[in-house]
């Protein structure tokens, strides 16, 4: 009695195809996801351009992100803040009409957070700005970006590297940043 290897292979043909197709689909999916749906560069509800505001018009960061030097969070400006200028500036542009609509509906703009740290991390903008860090150190050249791209990994080694090289007081204690 002889056992043919080919016979056994024929038996596995269908599952092998399914597995191969699955793996190929998975790889293609990851590629599509990372190329077109990059979470470092999310598509915002309004095509707000930092290049125009911070770059061409040279508006200081803290004109809109008012809480950066005072509180842990930098603060996304209110719709009212947008409308403060855009009641009279560029009111005919389609994106500004969208902003005006949010303002009329009394609803906040559902911005997508680009720089988000996990809930177990205590990060405060105030301390970092008072330590003399520039916004661009972490956020990159925002004044050249139309759509904001995350510049830094926001992972613990990145935090600890900086705390170590700058010799931050108690900068490597777990409970300085974790909560």
């Amino acid at each position: 009695m002889s056992i043919s290897v080919l016979e056994a292979l024929a038996y596995f043909k269908k599952p092998a195809l399914v597995v191969f197709g699955g793996v190929a689909g998975f790889v293609v999916g990851i590629w599509v996801n990372s190329t077109y749906f990059d979470d470092a560069t999310p598509i915002q509800p309004i095509e707000f351009s930092h290049r125009i505001h911070a770059g061409e018009n040279e508006i200081p960061c803290q004109y809109c992100h008012v809480y950066a030097a005072r509180t842990p969070v930098a603060g996304v400006p209110s719709v009212e803040k947008c409308m403060g200028c855009h009641r009279s500036v560029a009111t005919d542009k389609p994106e500004i009409i969208k902003v005006a609509q949010y303002f009329a509906d009394r609803k906040p703009i559902p911005w997508i957070k680009v720089y988000d740290v996990p809930d177990f991390v205590h990060f405060t903008h105030k301390r970092h700005i008072k330590a003399g860090l520039e916004c661009a150190t972490c956020h990159g050249p925002v004044d050249t970006m139309d759509r904001i791209t995350r510049q830094q990994p926001l992972r613990m080694p990145w935090c600890v590297d900086c705390h170590t090289s700058k010799e931050v007081e108690n900068g490597r204690d777990c409970w300085t940043c974790h909560k």
Partner: peptide
């Protein structure tokens, strides 16, 4: 769990 520089016995949940 470790002792930090303030004399606190702390617990790091992530770890």
């Amino acid at each position: 769990t470790y002792h930090n520089q303030d004399g606190l016995n702390t617990q790091v949940y992530n770890r």
